[in-house]
Simulated scan of single mutants.
Amino acid sequence: MKAIIPAAGLGTRFLPATKCTPKELLPVLDKPVIQYVVEEALEPDDVDGVVIVNSRLKPQMEKYFSEDKDFEEYLRAHGKDALAEKVHEAGALPVSFVYQDDPRGLGHAVWCAREEVGDEPFFVLLGDYFVPDRQMCVNMQKVSREHGGASVIAVAPVPEDQVSRYGIIAGECVGSLEGSDATGENEGAVWKVSGMVEKPAREDAPSHLFIVGRYLLSPRTMDLLATQGVGAGGEIQLTDAMVRLLESEDMYALVVDPSEGCDTGTPAAWAATNARLALSDPEQESAFREALGDVAL
Results as ranks from 00 to 15, higher is better:
K192Y: 12
D101Y: 01
A84H: 05
K58V: 03
L75S: 04
S280P: 05
E203S: 15
D101Q: 06
E73G: 06
S280K: 15
D68Q: 06
K58D: 03
F130T: 04
L297V: 14
L225D: 02
G188P: 00
P59K: 12
V138G: 07
I169L: 13
T264A: 12
A201C: 08
E178I: 03
E249C: 01
P121D: 01
G265T: 07
C173V: 15
T183H: 08
L277M: 15
C112K: 06
L29K: 09
R214K: 15
A291S: 13
R202K: 15
L29Q: 11
R114S: 12
A232P: 00
V230T: 15
A7W: 01
E283I: 03
Q60C: 06
R145Q: 14
R220F: 00
M196S: 02
G127N: 13
A154Y: 00
L224V: 02
Y166L: 07
M140R: 08
Y99L: 04
A287R: 11
P121L: 00
P44T: 11
A189D: 06
D119N: 14
E187A: 13
E24L: 13
A271R: 11
T264S: 11
G234H: 05
E185K: 10
E185N: 09
R145N: 12
S151Y: 00
P44L: 12
L15A: 15
D101P: 03
E24W: 12
L57G: 08
V143N: 02
P59V: 12
E89I: 03
Q162P: 00
Q228K: 11
F65T: 01
G234S: 07
L83V: 14
G118I: 12
L93P: 03
A241I: 00
E146K: 11
L238A: 04
H147A: 07
A7S: 11
P200N: 07
E73D: 14
C112V: 05
P44F: 07
A275H: 05
V117S: 05
R214Y: 15
S194W: 08
R76Q: 09
V230R: 13
R13T: 03
Q135Y: 05
A269M: 10
P94L: 09
E67H: 10
M136T: 13
V47F: 06
K80M: 14
P94F: 08
S259R: 10
H78W: 12
P32N: 05
G105V: 01
A154S: 08
P94Y: 09
Q162G: 02
M1I: 01
D263M: 09
R289H: 13
V255Y: 07
R56W: 13
T21V: 14
R202P: 05
Q228W: 02
V50L: 06
